[in-house]
Simulated assay, not measured.
Amino acid sequence: MSRSYPNSVTIPVGVVVRRTPGVTRWAKYAWAVTDVLPGAAAADWKVLRTEGDVTEYHAATLPLTLYVSDAEAYAHELQARVPSIYTVLRPNEQSGGLPWSVALVTASPYEAQDYCDSAEELVEKLPLPHGLLAWVVEFVEKHYEEEAFVKRRRKNARVDQTDDGVGDARIRQATDVYRAPRRREVIN
C-alpha cells in the first residue's frame, strides 16, 4: 500500500473533481476538487457519476509523499481545527476538452501556500479522510521533535554606557547631530 524512500513514505491518492454548469456566460463549467481516495488505482479522468449537468471524475491518482524534513509542516496542519489535504490543479495546455490537470497532492500547508502565490493554479483544501489522518499522525509522532525555544542573549553588551546623541565627542557641536536639516532661504 505505501512505499518508502529514504526519509519519506508514499501512498497513492486519487483526486475526485466535480464539473458543474457555470454561473456566468464566460465560464461554461465550474470545476472543483471534492474528495480524495487513499490507496486508489491509476485513473485518467474516469467518470464516476453523472446527475443531470453535474459530473464527477476520478481525475488522477498521484503519490502523497511525507518527508521527514517537512514533519513540522504536517504537525502544524494537524493542529488545525480541521486537518486538511491540499490538491493543486494546473491549466491543461493540451486540447481535449478538459481544462485542468492534477499537478500535486500534499499534506503540507506550507507547500500549498507556495502554489497559492501564483494565480494560475487552482489550490483546493479538503478535510483529511480518517485513514489518511491516522497515517499522517503516525508519521508525525515518529519523526517530529519540537525544538525548545531558547531566547538569545546579547554577548559583550555594555549596558552601563550612555549615548547622548551628539555624535563625535572630538567635534564641538551645540546641538544634536541627528536633527533634520534646516531649509535655506534664497534672497533675490
Rank of each mutant, 00 (worst) to 15 (best):
V150Y: 14
V15R: 01
Q173I: 09
A32W: 05
L37W: 11
V17A: 08
P181R: 02
A73Y: 00
G22A: 15
L133S: 14
E141Y: 06
L128Y: 09
E145M: 15
G97S: 10
I11K: 05
N188Y: 12
V13W: 04
D160K: 08
R184Q: 10
T106Q: 07
L64A: 10
E124P: 02
P109I: 00
A43E: 15
A41F: 09
E145Q: 08
G22P: 03
T87L: 07
C116I: 13
D70I: 02
R154G: 14
E56F: 02
R170V: 08
E147G: 15
C116H: 15
V166D: 06
C116E: 03
Y178M: 03
Y5F: 14
L48D: 10
N156H: 09
D117N: 03
P129L: 02
D117Q: 13
M1W: 09
P181Q: 06
E138A: 07
W26E: 03
P38G: 14
L122E: 01
N156G: 13
V137D: 11
T87I: 04
R172V: 15
R170G: 07
T65R: 12
R49Q: 12
W26R: 05
Y74W: 11
A174Y: 10
V140D: 06
D164V: 15
V9A: 10
G96Q: 02
Q94D: 09
N188S: 05
T162N: 14
M1Y: 08
R170K: 08
I11L: 10
P21R: 15
R49A: 10
Y67H: 09
A180Q: 08
P99Q: 11
V82R: 10
W31Y: 02
F139T: 04
